[in-house]
């Protein structure tokens, strides 16, 4: 006997993500799901972003590390509410992990929630968490072949930050190819060339992000 199903395998997660989204909308919280491979510079970008706009918005951070609390400690130093999710070896953050982390925050006191996902270019792109936008980093030492190898994350992201631009003269990174291949996956992708070390190029990212948050708040 045949039984028709026709259902997304991650349907249950999608529904939890929608519930999270409703909660964020009620509290007017703009949520970023930040993704990249390990070490591309996610925590560095979170630190730089906090420094740039913490006087304008009330920020909170969720850190998804497989084990240690190293990243969460870096954020806590900036006097920002931060919750560490222990993914227990999981390669991504899912909607339920976010739902379970939310009671640790006072949602009335957050304008912007940044979720640093687990370092991985495949899995995080598949799991919705209730975010407004996905943002990804690609660092120059990783090479320009990543869009071709991991297309989904590039398709799903609203913005791509090409990080560690300060290293570009030391390594073979085909910037033109990275930009072209990324755009061939996602014509609307907003690309920024930055260095989270020298802060070069970050003003454009901050300006773009600020505009997105303000538009959301006005709605």
């Amino acid at each position: 006997m045949k039984v028709k199903v026709v259902k997304k395998v991650l349907d249950a997660n999608d529904r939890i993500a929608e519930e999270n989204r409703k909660l964020f909308d009620q509290h007017k919280i703009f949520v970023i799901n930040l993704m990249s491979s390990p070490g591309a510079g996610k925590t560095s970008l979170v630190e730089q972003t906090i420094k740039a706009i913490k006087n304008k918005y009330k920020i909170a951070v969720i850190e998804g590390d497989i084990q240690d609390t190293y990243d969460a400690d870096r954020i806590a130093k900036l006097k920002i509410p931060v919750v560490q999710i222990n993914t227990g070896g999981a390669c991504h953050i899912d909607g339920n992990m976010i739902r379970e982390a939310l009671p640790s925050f006072d949602l009335n006191k957050i304008d912007l929630l940044i979720v640093e996902n687990v370092g991985n270019l495949v899995c995080p792109a598949e799991f919705k968490i209730g975010e407004n936008i996905k943002v990804m980093l690609l660092s120059t030492p990783e090479g320009a072949d990543k869009p071709a190898k991991y297309p989904l994350m590039f398709q799903e992201s609203a913005a791509l930050l090409i990080n560690k631009m300060d290293l570009i003269s030391y390594i073979d990174f085909d910037l033109k190819k990275a930009r072209r291949d990324s755009l061939s996956l996602n014509k609307k992708l907003k690309i920024f060339e930055v260095s989270c070390k020298t802060a070069e190029g970050l003003e454009a990212w901050i300006a773009w992000l600020t505009q997105r948050i303000d538009e959301f708040k006005k709605k």
Partner: peptide, 11 residues
């Protein structure tokens, strides 16, 4: 890049 779907079960 279509995500994984269950179409049908043979039971």
């Amino acid at each position: 890049t279509e995500e994984l779907k269950i179409l049908e079960l043979d039971v």
